[in-house]
């Protein structure tokens, strides 16, 4: 039997996906602008951020309305909770993309350094992790969530490596200090984008499986995420391992 508020839930699913695609495109354009040190493209990204902000507010309002009027439970409840979290993470991700775009101008005279540091490889990985997590959001195929965790670890390693190279450059050539600092800040923004991608992956896992796995790095390391019946929920089948490690809410 179709319920009248199924239409509202469908609207929410579509909007969160639209938000995901919008932010994925924002990150993609930012990464291209970064690699090419393309100031003009960066300015377009900054201008287009309003669309993300407007959609963010629309999704929040829709969730508020569904909560207030329908008292959702089970999958419906999880959809709204996960959507609120993902919406927030996507909006923050978009903000970081814009922050990076704002720093592209400062790189325009240092394209050689950007190439030398292989920022293009990092940009490619960042673009991919965001695109992949949005694909999972669309398909709800949680088998691929472990890949997001692995990819975020790879991005962190690359950032670590590039950071070390930047420090060496700063030590040797004092005239690059300003651009190097700029790049360090960009690296930190990229790291946050990877973190938010993982957060979104965890929200999708919660939505599909009903288990909270945030703050549980070990959970992904062990590769238990996709093993549905390998239960982290031993105590009365209700609390995840990580929840048990957190302070009791009671």
């Amino acid at each position: 039997m179709e319920r009248h508020f199924d239409l509202e839930l469908e609207k929410l699913k579509k909007r969160i996906l639209k938000m995901g695609n919008l932010v994925a495109s924002q990150v993609h354009q930012t990464m291209v602008a970064l690699v090419n040190c393309d100031v003009e493209a960066a300015e377009e990204i900054i201008e287009a951020d309003n669309a993300v902000d407007e959609l963010d507010v629309k999704i929040d309002k829709l969730c508020q309305r569904i909560f207030a009027l329908t008292q959702p439970v089970a999958t419906d409840l999880r959809l709204i909770m996960a959507s609120l979290r993902m919406n927030n993470d996507l909006e923050r991700m978009g903000d970081h993309a814009v922050d990076i775009a704002k720093r592209v101008e400062g790189l325009s005279d240092y394209k050689d350094i950007v190439q030398e540091l292989k920022i293009d490889e990092l940009a490619e990985s960042t673009d991919a992790i965001v695109r992949d997590v949005i694909t999972i959001l669309n398909s709800r195929n949680i088998v691929f969530i472990k890949d997001i965790f692995d990819d975020s670890e790879i991005i962190k390693s690359k950032i670590q490596l590039i950071s070390e190279q930047i420090i060496v450059q700063m030590t040797n050539k004092t005239d690059v200090v300003v651009v190097a600092t700029n790049l360090m800040i960009i690296l930190s923004q990229i790291e946050r984008i990877a973190d938010y991608s993982l957060n979104i992956a965890e929200s999708i896992f919660f939505l599909v499986e009903g288990r909270l796995v945030k703050h549980s790095k070990g959970f992904w390391d062990q590769g238990t995420a996709t093993k549905k019946n390998q239960d982290t929920t031993t105590e009365e089948n209700e609390d995840t391992t990580i929840e048990k490690n957190l302070p009791s809410e009671e």
Partner: peptide, 18 residues
């Protein structure tokens, strides 16, 4: 648990009004 992650589909369908 029943109202957040019910195990049976029939329970889920009933409590969500489906």
């Amino acid at each position: 648990k029943i109202f957040t992650v019910p195990e049976k589909k029939q329970t889920e369908d009933y409590i969500t009004g489906r």
